[in-house]
Computed example of a mutant assay.
Amino acid sequence: MPSQIPIDAFSSRLGIDLDAIRANYRAIAQRIAPARCGAVVKANAYGLGVAMVGPALCREGCRTFFVAQLCEGEPLARVVGGDSEIFILNGIDPGSEALCVERGFLPVLNSTTQVERWRTLARATDRPLPAALQVDSGMSRLGLPPAAAIDLASDPAFAREVDLRLLMTHLACADEPARPANAEQLARFRAVHAHFPGVPASVANSGGTFLGAEFHGDLARPGVALFGVDPGPLAEGLRPTVRLDARVLQIRTIEAGTGVGYGLEHVAATRQRLATVAIGYADGWPRCLGGIGAAWHGGTRLPIVGRVSMDSTTIDISALSEEALHEGDFVELIGPSQSLDQVARDAGTIAYELLTQLGARHARIYLENGATQVRAPGDHR
């Protein structure tokens, strides 16, 4: 249901183009065919709202989804339908095995202890339980060592107790195509996969979908690429999906020698016109952008001056005429003039981090098929 709070009540607006997300999914699915294409929608669809993003991906034909934690499965299941698979990438926390079975989610078993807990429940229920198995092929993050995975393949009881739906690994350097680690990880994974005939293989994350076809396996798991973030230098054809605008709260003129913001770190060298904008680090706008980043208006770059505060940011609008910008108008923070990737570079981070932090107070404006739907922050219906 749309938010009952009028959009004018919000000081910042996060536009989310569902058509672009669907187009990115479609482009990746076509690129990797005949491999199937899933979608990683962890962290509330990378901060953009799984309640809207999940159904949009379903409308594009996606039926396999990945989240990180069990608690993320239920909100997704409510909106993607009973014919969708939902994998839990981090596997199962101790004591949550029965709940995972009850909800019909598929844990990715990442350690021998997770495997054993799953097998114990299977023996107790006297039926094989569906799951995926992750192999650590060289990232040293999650997954069984190759030797431990091969031992399971040679254990007849494992096949009776675990209905293995997927064998997967995760690439550490997919965003750097020239790194030998990519081929090395693939070779290690293939050596293990040979012991699991008939089990679908999954290797490619977002960056992996733009590597060679040998990385595509049977099922790819794009995540951030769906949301328009380039996952490496080989990525092409992805559409931006977000726009962020914030309202001007106040405009003032200061004289040379006047300090601005906490710590008075910016001191005007000449007379300046400043605008205080309703966005700060509580809204996911990085504090470190002070003195580095910018907003935009009418194609003009408006540098941030002084520190970014919790609820506001000050920009230098001296380059604009007095009639170009007024209190109550909006300036662009992410959009046609300044990409998400550019803001992330200015902040010394990556687009993944910036994207997942946006949205604490922004009105969400979802665009699809020419229609607009506005949702308040926290509206997960």
Score class of each variant (00 low, 15 high):
residue 254 I to A: 01
residue 102 E to Q: 11
residue 38 G to N: 09
residue 175 D to Q: 14
residue 339 S to Y: 08
residue 162 V to I: 10
residue 255 E to R: 13
residue 282 A to V: 09
residue 376 A to S: 11
residue 282 A to I: 01
residue 370 G to V: 09
residue 231 P to E: 05
residue 325 L to K: 04
residue 248 V to E: 03
residue 115 V to A: 02
residue 117 R to G: 00
residue 257 G to P: 04
residue 94 P to E: 11
residue 107 P to C: 11
residue 8 D to C: 01
residue 286 P to F: 03
residue 156 P to D: 08
residue 68 A to L: 15
residue 312 S to L: 00
residue 292 I to R: 15
residue 211 L to A: 12
residue 328 G to I: 03
residue 140 S to L: 14
residue 29 A to D: 07
residue 85 E to K: 07
residue 182 N to H: 02
residue 122 A to P: 01
residue 55 P to Q: 06
residue 164 L to W: 00
residue 181 A to T: 12
residue 258 T to M: 15
residue 228 G to K: 00
residue 152 L to A: 05
residue 139 M to F: 11
residue 367 L to H: 11
residue 295 A to N: 01
residue 267 V to H: 14
residue 114 Q to D: 08
residue 290 G to I: 11
residue 266 H to N: 12
residue 278 A to I: 01
residue 25 Y to D: 05
residue 28 I to A: 08
residue 269 A to M: 11
residue 202 S to K: 08
residue 326 H to D: 09
residue 4 Q to F: 13
residue 312 S to G: 12
residue 174 A to D: 13
residue 142 L to H: 11
residue 366 Y to E: 04
residue 204 A to M: 05
residue 336 P to R: 12
residue 307 R to P: 01
residue 219 L to T: 01
residue 236 E to R: 15
residue 201 A to M: 08
residue 274 L to F: 10
residue 368 E to V: 07
residue 259 G to E: 06
residue 107 P to Y: 08
residue 69 Q to L: 15
residue 268 A to W: 05
residue 141 R to S: 08
residue 176 E to D: 14
residue 55 P to C: 01
residue 20 A to I: 05
residue 277 V to C: 08
residue 305 V to S: 11
residue 63 R to V: 11
residue 284 G to H: 00
residue 357 Q to T: 10
residue 320 L to P: 01
residue 333 L to R: 13
residue 306 G to Q: 00
residue 63 R to D: 11
residue 222 P to M: 14
residue 69 Q to R: 15
residue 253 T to K: 14
residue 26 R to W: 02
residue 53 V to C: 03
residue 104 G to A: 13
residue 304 I to A: 13
residue 193 H to I: 05
residue 207 G to N: 09
residue 362 H to A: 13
residue 288 C to K: 15
residue 248 V to S: 10
residue 374 V to Q: 02
